[in-house]
Amino acid sequence: MSSTEQGTSSAAPAEPTTAPESAAAPEVPESFYYVHGKDKVVHKVSAGALQHSALIHGMISNLGYTEEQAKANPFPFENIDGDILQMVVDWCNQHKGKPTPPEDTNLPKQKEKLFDLVLAVNYLEIKELLTYCCKQVAMMVKGKSPEEIREIWMIPTDAEDEAAEKEAKKRAGKEAAGETAAAAGDAK
């Protein structure tokens, strides 16, 4: 296990956090797996909760890990921020074995955080949560004018896009010219 293994809510605990269990205790002992994000904080998640993620479900379905093996081999998701992964894990636990409701009001309202969550959820292939997130993204611009949407989502205007493209072309041209000059210098 990584030496940076921590609890989720604070830096102090050395043991991985245990996901809150659903009210009905399973008859057969449930297997658990471990995941960590960019911050290396390890989350212990039940296989039942992980079923929401098609990606992880596909990874674990044929592993047959023992508890020790699972603990020793947490799935690394280095492209996902720790607190975003925490959100995803919490959601999976909350909705473990339950039908997903038509609305989810617990999603972050901050746009950047929401977009990060969307990318993480998309990567982890959690279809229902992705649906909620996309709805939330759509709600961000409800009733907004084009100018307001451009401002909220920082969408560059066509003129800005064209200027950026020109700049990129110019830079690429300069770099190519530099490389040609360097190659000519080497040849001499």
């Binding site: 950047e112 955080k113 990060d116 969307v118 990318l119 992705l130 993204v137 920082m154």
Partner: peptide, 18 residues
């Protein structure tokens, strides 16, 4: 964590979903 992701960083299929 620094959140800098925005609409323009979304893949096209996600944008279409939204």
């Amino acid at each position: 964590p620094i959140y800098e992701t925005n609409w323009c960083d979304m893949p096209a299929d996600i944008k279409l979903e939204c």
